[in-house]
Amino acid sequence: MSIQHFRVALIPFFAAFCLPVFAHPETLVKVKDAEDQLGARVGYIELDLNSGKILESFRPEERFPMMSTFKVLLCGAVLSRVDAGQEQLGRRIHYSQNDLVEYSPVTEKHLTDGMTVRELCSAAITMSDNTAANLLLTTIGGPKELTAFLHNMGDHVTRLDRWEPELNEAIPNDERDTTMPAAMATTLRKLLTGELLTLASRQQLIDWMEADKVAGPLLRSALPAGWFIADKSGAGERGSRGIIAALGPDGKPSRIVVIYTTGSQATMDERNRQIAEIGASLIKHW
Score class of each variant (00 low, 15 high):
residue 23 A to W: 03
residue 259 I to R: 00
residue 12 P to F: 12
residue 40 A to T: 08
residue 151 H to R: 15
residue 266 A to M: 13
residue 213 K to G: 08
residue 253 P to T: 08
residue 139 T to I: 14
residue 64 F to W: 03
residue 122 S to K: 13
residue 194 G to T: 15
residue 13 F to Q: 05
residue 53 K to N: 14
residue 140 I to K: 03
residue 244 I to D: 00
residue 224 P to T: 06
residue 199 L to I: 15
residue 100 L to A: 04
residue 218 L to R: 02
residue 183 A to I: 09
residue 17 F to A: 10
residue 85 G to M: 08
residue 80 S to R: 11
residue 70 F to I: 06
residue 120 L to E: 01
residue 201 S to E: 02
residue 154 G to W: 04
residue 209 M to Q: 02
residue 63 R to Q: 08
residue 10 L to C: 11
residue 271 R to C: 09
residue 92 R to V: 14
residue 238 R to Y: 13
residue 65 P to N: 04
residue 203 Q to D: 11
residue 169 E to W: 14
residue 84 A to F: 09
residue 166 E to M: 14
residue 232 K to V: 00
residue 188 L to D: 00
residue 63 R to Y: 07
residue 114 G to K: 04
residue 80 S to F: 12
residue 129 D to S: 01
residue 115 M to K: 03
residue 134 N to T: 04
residue 132 A to S: 08
residue 259 I to V: 14
residue 95 Y to H: 05
residue 107 T to H: 01
residue 242 G to S: 07
residue 55 L to N: 07
residue 197 L to A: 04
residue 3 I to L: 12
residue 5 H to V: 08
residue 132 A to K: 00
residue 36 D to E: 13
residue 167 L to M: 12
residue 11 I to Q: 05
residue 200 A to K: 13
residue 77 A to N: 13
residue 17 F to C: 09
residue 231 D to E: 04
residue 45 I to V: 15
residue 187 T to A: 09
residue 6 F to D: 05
residue 247 L to A: 05
residue 248 G to S: 03
residue 83 D to N: 05
residue 190 K to R: 14
residue 106 V to M: 12
residue 197 L to V: 05
residue 44 Y to V: 07
residue 249 P to L: 06
residue 230 A to V: 06
residue 27 T to E: 03
residue 131 T to S: 12
residue 194 G to K: 09
residue 30 K to P: 02
residue 256 I to L: 12
residue 4 Q to G: 08
residue 70 F to E: 02
residue 226 G to K: 11
residue 100 L to R: 04
residue 198 T to K: 13
residue 81 R to N: 13
residue 175 E to A: 14
residue 4 Q to K: 12
residue 148 A to M: 15
residue 143 P to Y: 03
residue 228 F to S: 07
residue 219 L to C: 04
residue 284 K to T: 15
residue 137 L to N: 04
residue 30 K to V: 11
residue 266 A to V: 13
residue 254 S to P: 07
residue 147 T to Q: 09
residue 169 E to G: 14
residue 258 V to D: 01
residue 119 E to C: 04
residue 130 N to F: 00
residue 223 L to P: 02
residue 91 R to G: 05
residue 161 D to C: 06
residue 168 N to P: 02
residue 78 V to Y: 03
residue 13 F to P: 07
residue 158 T to R: 00
residue 271 R to S: 08
residue 207 D to I: 10
residue 285 H to M: 09
residue 28 L to Q: 08
residue 171 I to Q: 15
residue 162 R to F: 03
residue 204 Q to F: 07
residue 37 Q to N: 15
residue 83 D to V: 03
residue 21 V to K: 06
residue 245 A to D: 00
residue 53 K to P: 03
residue 188 L to R: 00
residue 146 L to T: 04
residue 212 D to G: 06
residue 187 T to E: 03
residue 69 T to M: 03
residue 218 L to V: 04
residue 32 K to Y: 10
residue 251 G to I: 07
residue 159 R to S: 08
